[in-house]
Design a protein around this nucleic acid. Sequence first.
DNA 1: TTGTTATATTGCAATATTACGATAAACCAA
DNA 2: TTGGTTTATCGTAATATTGCAATATAACAA
Lengths: 109, 109
Amino acid sequence: MGVSKTDHFSDHQNAVANIAKALGHPARVAIIEHLIKVDQCICGDLVNELPLAQPTISQHLKELKNVNLIKGNIEGTSICYCVNKETLLYLKNYLSQLCCNESESSSII
Amino acid sequence: MGVSKTDHFSDHQNAVANIAKALGHPARVAIIEHLIKVDQCICGDLVNELPLAQPTISQHLKELKNVNLIKGNIEGTSICYCVNKETLLYLKNYLSQLCCNESESSSII
DNA sequence: TTGTTATATTGCAATATTACGATAAACCAA
DNA sequence: TTGGTTTATCGTAATATTGCAATATAACAA
């Protein structure tokens, strides 16, 4: 039916899936990479950087914000975005535990 | 239009996005976790383990196979699935480089 | 052969995602 | 106030995803 049964899975399974899903589009990967590269920038810079229209970029930023992969700080007229490394780290540590059984934090499975 | 412009992004951006997308559903996260936990198992075990019908599990397995997150070995009548840790490692190392600038391999950005 | 078991595929409905033009909202400058 | 700049939201079309019943396929046993 296309109904997703997220309530049948654990909180951490849904958390991992949501973060992974947000990274599951090349435009959003490119946004994260650009933000890491320049440390932080405004939405308009990303519009110039990527081959997508401004509303599309804005929509992708919203999805990255929803899962806490980025943060936005208002700076006068524009909004300055930067990556929230904690969320990236959460996914990285999860994968570390999965494939190497080694991590900086306690088991989350 | 819903048209995805994957050709406007780099190969590695598309590769990362495709792997992340495959992990972007709690059922597929649960499948990976179960495979890691029991080392390997057949499709039927996953059907018993997860709250989804057999065709749905089969479809999720197909998507995980498409991005090389799992491998399937024919064993008589059934197919034995196991996780391909190399692909998990690829994503893990990518995230390591992104958020900590430290990795076991050379820069991929 | 027939029957059983295990998995994949097909077809379809419900829903979600992607993309963008048009427009709105918020802020500052003159 | 008006005008410019920046970002968000709305509306909508095209496409993708999710889920499953029904069916197909493949391998084996009797």
